[in-house]
Design a protein around this nucleic acid. Structure first.
Lengths: 247, 247
DNA sequence: CGTTATGTTGAGCTCTCTCAAGCTTGGTGG
DNA sequence: CCACCAAGCTTGAGAGAGCTCAACATAACG
């Protein structure tokens, strides 16, 4: 624990791994200093809750390392993941007192918190923060809409392939070997994948087995995926083959 | 047509029905004047396309009157609605050259367009616009996430009930009669409802018939809905009975 | 009137869910 | 060191919700 705290205390904006992608990306040195005055780090172990829906939130935060999930739960227990927070993603909403979703650390997690009131004040006085937050929120909205297409119209197999493709695409530990193969770790359990995709965990398991049986992917252990041919995986997602033309 | 243009030309910010809810809500008189210099109105008839995904967009816009839909289409024709634009909602994204979704007018539609380049410049110089846009985008993100729960986890019956409840809640022409009954027009065809809910149009039709048969709703024509007991409808949505506590 | 767009209803099928059993892996305590 | 246990995962069998295909109904419109 003391060792852990030590690591937290080593963090500074100067060495921060998300310095240029997070909500503070556009900030100048003086603005960063103002942010620094209201920030503090927190860490959570894999599996721990960060906040429950309805709880009062006294902070907003950026994910520094690790992965967290946003989930909604219905009265009878049905659950749907509505967000996946990766390093540099923002959690919480300025101007809102209570959390709207359950937030859970799915891996060990470090977040950079800003006390909400002073953060809101800073947003009003330094446009760079609000500008960046708008940009990030628009990106999230686009991601949510792509996800809606997945939830509403894709088959179980397409859903699995899409999720694997998303993780492969934005996983930092992804390594492309010489021949176009990719390897990565799944950061989610089968149940979490099911909550993400609007499926049951059994269907997730069966579809993964099917993709494995057909050679689209290979498993090394339960959580490590090897994709021999990324194009073949992408062909299973149901998405356009040409990923949209550059603007 | 000339009569139509006449009506468009009558529009001014001073009499604009969405003046206090749209992206210009927070603007002062001088800011409004700057916006006014780069704005122009357009109108579309029900059913007409406003823009196709991938098209270059030379403007962003606010919906003034009428309803438009945002939809995504897969190669094989499967479609999913990802947004429903009501008066005051914003379309387009500053900083993006091409449209990401198909936009279609589902009723007669009037939008207030801002030329994109000057709008982006204005956003940089007048914080009020960006602030309001951030607020609206965060609201849309919340709506998208609630919609994800619907798409991923609700039954066909719950989906229909939820859609009716949403329309009932925010339809301006909603009238509550003395005894708690509500009446409103459906702005969508059965097929559009299906695209919204991730269902087929046949399933939509069947579920509406079922709700009618059981007295949860009554139809007056195909498009006019009467809800004798709103609470009964809400109970069918699967959502929390208490609509969340005020913060 | 025919024509077209929209909506309803039926019959059968399929994909995904539910329920259930069993497997693997890692950790814990005797 | 082994036995046990729990969490995560896989697989099977049967059921059911929603889809597909098809026929028909209704209404608006030329």
């Amino acid at each position: 624990m003391s060792q852990h705290d030590l690591k937290l205390n080593d963090l500074t904006c100067g060495t921060c791994p998300i310095r240029h992608r997070a909500v503070c990306a556009r900030c100048e040195a003086d603005e960063l200093e103002q942010l620094g005055a209201i920030k503090y780090y927190r860490s959570y172990q894999a599996g721990q809750p960060v906040i429950w829906s309805g709880d009062q939130m006294e902070f907003v935060a950026s994910v520094v390392t690790g992965i967290a999930t946003l989930t909604q739960t219905m009265e009878d227990g049905r659950r749907q993941m509505v967000g996946l927070l990766l390093p540099s993603d923002f959690m919480g909403r300025p101007g809102r007192a209570n959390a709207a979703y359950d937030v859970t650390a799915t891996t060990d997690l470090v977040i950079c918190c800003f006390r909400k009131k002073p953060f809101e004040a800073l947003m009003a006085s330094t446009p760079h923060i609000g500008q960046r937050l708008l940009e990030m929120t628009l990106d999230e909205l686009d991601a949510a809409r792509e996800w809606m297409l997945l939830l509403g119209r894709k088959t179980a197999r397409e859903k699995i392939a899409s999720l694997l493709a998303i993780i492969a695409r934005r996983n930092a530990s992804l390594r492309l070997t010489e021949d176009g193969a990719a390897r990565f770790d799944l950061p989610l359990t089968r149940e979490q994948m099911a909550d993400y995709l609007g499926l049951t965990l059994e269907t997730v398991s069966r579809q993964i087995s099917a993709l494995k049986r057909e050679g689209v992917i290979a498993l090394e252990g339960k959580r490590h995926i090897m994709v021999p041919d990324l194009d073949r995986l992408l062909a299973e997602t149901g998405d356009d083959s040409d990923g949209g033309m550059p603007s």
